[in-house]
Design a protein around this nucleic acid. Structure first.
Lengths: 352, 352
DNA sequence: TGTACGGATGTTACCGCTAACAAACGAGGC
DNA sequence: GCCTCGTTTGTTAGCGGTAACATCCGTACA
């Protein structure tokens, strides 16, 4: 009906655009862009006019348009195996709390512990053009390594450390701790407590869990007390229920077990519950050690000996390194791989 | 040096663009777009050529450019109070697992239980132009309600239900369960067990927790056994440690307490541990009930009576509704608010 | 008084993709 | 044989910003 209907505010979504603000403030769009992003580059008077117009129109700059024009999306792909494992939630929390204040938006991807799924998820994440990538672990498919090699954005690998000479064809930055050493520490601790029949219970057999087991095994060998028969490794996801069940199985087949390393605290808690139920005195008859120092480990009955891992700190540090890499003018980080070891702490409490 | 250097692959990031694929396949860019998004609209021969060229160049369409051109970002803003509360992680997991297969990418925002922070986070999320929004709870600032009212994309509120007549000025879709009824169920259960001095311990006093408490209170009033002195409500985040501490405080001031409702399972677990430590027999001397049926609740000693809440299902259903809203041609959902009650289950185990 | 200079603003040309419309083409109907 | 129609493909014109360069202006200096 109306001829050439005037549109006071453009944009399909009905939102005001930069052009609207520019018109309202009587300046060019470019000046609006400058006034909002680098206020020191425009005159005070213009800045005031732009701010006022912008506020009045409720202007929110479109990050999508900005991303296309500037080739920076202000997003970061964060790939973790699972949302139900507290370890990775803590990692994510550390990442999130570090990225957010800098204006970066994490894009969370779940890989379900599978390198193939990881590659798939990474591919879809990359379509969003993130400015950086944070991965969990170092066990990627060849396809993933290819993808990573081709990237021009910084990538950080977490929860694990580069071994010497590894991945020499593709410089990697890692932030984590030595899963092997941590496992070794537990094994050595149990041996030092004078235990002779030291068993192992592990679930969710990802490479990090295996490394912990390897460390534990080495410690027992060094102590001359390793018995492969006392190892019980199952692929199932760890849980309190599984811990309870596997404890029973272990005691049924090897009643003389006098110490047990459970590769995750939820398993250990389940084992402790089951001990209480069966009337097995801990630590007198059976010493129990867990891993990760999850919430509540200090409050079990008796308080659980475990290894405190710096999951949140790893997230924070990974995000920091990433921000550094995304911010610096010349991406030198690719030639300058780093390996940040955040360590771990053996928390000796009363179950051992 | 070279005159007009040919660029075999364009794009600042070094990635192949649609134009590159088009050139390689000998068709126009538009045809490439069609061949990839709606294969049935191009001839079989062209489709094959495009697929081949696309694969050969390792083409990944830029979602940013696509988003700008089509006004669909394929992202969904998901706001939750905290990453360290398992309840919201489960919600998030449900959302994630439902959105992902449909090609949607969740943008996770953390509000820290504060409506003001929520408004801030929502604002920054909206700059990313999500195609939909999922919020936790219904207690938003007036500013947030204004924002929501102005949106043309679907919005789902979770973990709570709309009360009759509420928000009549702004139709809302909610997916959740009645926190009040759930709290009532616990109160009624404890009363039915013949307990006379029934106490309450609550932390993290967000509106949902308060509603649970209200329900519990009503149940006790209906049973004629409500004593406000037995309510212990603190603002701190819930944790196993806090549960242990508050249990001691309660017993110190009111040694005659014979039943206790702890508003979250971690508090309840802490209380159970502390009971074990103090030698207080559960349930003989003290009945204990938790809330949420978190992992491990069925394995405590004795197994914890609690309320199973459909957190993951809420996430799944919210995401489903959202997808429906984002997909339908005419966004009728705004006039057609829904209220999906997913219920809860009282899990009577051995602590009561 | 002419000129070089630095800061403030505007202009132009995209970023990589897609909606909408236009054109080209072959098939079938009369 | 001409016309209409449906299918396949191409063309044009943006989406809403920003980089890079151009222009304008007042000022300090010779």
């Amino acid at each position: 009906m109306t001829a050439t209907p005037r549109k006071p505010r453009s944009s399909r979504s009905g939102r005001a655009t930069m052009a609207d603000v520019a018109a309202a403030a009587g300046v060019s769009a470019m000046t609006v862009s400058r006034a909002l992003r680098r206020p020191d580059t425009v005159s005070e008077e213009v800045r005031a006019r732009v701010d006022e117009a912008s506020r009045r129109l409720g202007f929110v700059p479109s990050r999508v348009a900005s991303a296309l024009a500037s080739a920076r999306t202000m997003t970061v792909a964060v790939l973790i195996p699972s949302l139900t494992n507290a370890v990775f939630i803590d990692l994510l929390a550390g990442v999130q709390e570090t990225l957010s204040p800098q204006g970066y938006q994490p894009l969370v991807g779940i890989t379900g512990y599978g390198p193939e799924a990881e590659e798939r998820v990474l591919r879809t994440q990359l379509a969003h053009d993130p400015d950086g990538v944070i991965l969990s672990g170092l066990d990627h498919t060849p396809g993933t390594w290819d993808l990573l090699r081709g990237l021009t954005i910084p990538v950080i690998h977490t929860m694990d450390l580069t071994a010497e000479g590894e991945h020499s064809d593709c410089p990697v930055q890692t932030v984590g701790f030595s899963q092997f050493d941590a496992g070794y520490a537990v094994g050595a601790h149990l041996a030092a407590r004078g235990r002779r029949r030291i068993g192992l219970i592990a679930g969710q057999l990802d490479p990090r869990t295996r490394q912990r087991c390897d460390g534990w095994r080495q410690a027992l060998r060094d102590a001359g007390r390793h018995d492969p028969a006392l190892e019980l490794m199952v692929p199932d996801a760890t849980s309190v229920a599984l811990g309870a069940e596997l404890l029973e199985r272990t005691l049924a087949t090897h009643p003389d077990t006098d110490a047990l390393f459970l590769c995750n605290d939820d398993l250990a808690q389940g084992a402790l519950f089951q001990c209480a139920r069966l009337g097995i005195p801990v630590p007198e008859r059976l010493a129990v050690a867990g891993f990760n120092d999850l919430a509540g480990a200090a409050w079990t009955v008796p308080p659980l000996t475990t290894v405190a891992t710096p999951r949140r700190a790893i997230g924070v540090e990974a995000a920091r390194l990433l921000i550094a890499g995304m911010t610096e003018r010349t991406p030198k980080s690719r030639e300058n791989p780093r390996r940040v070891d955040l360590g771990f702490r053996l928390m000796v409490r009363e179950t051992t």
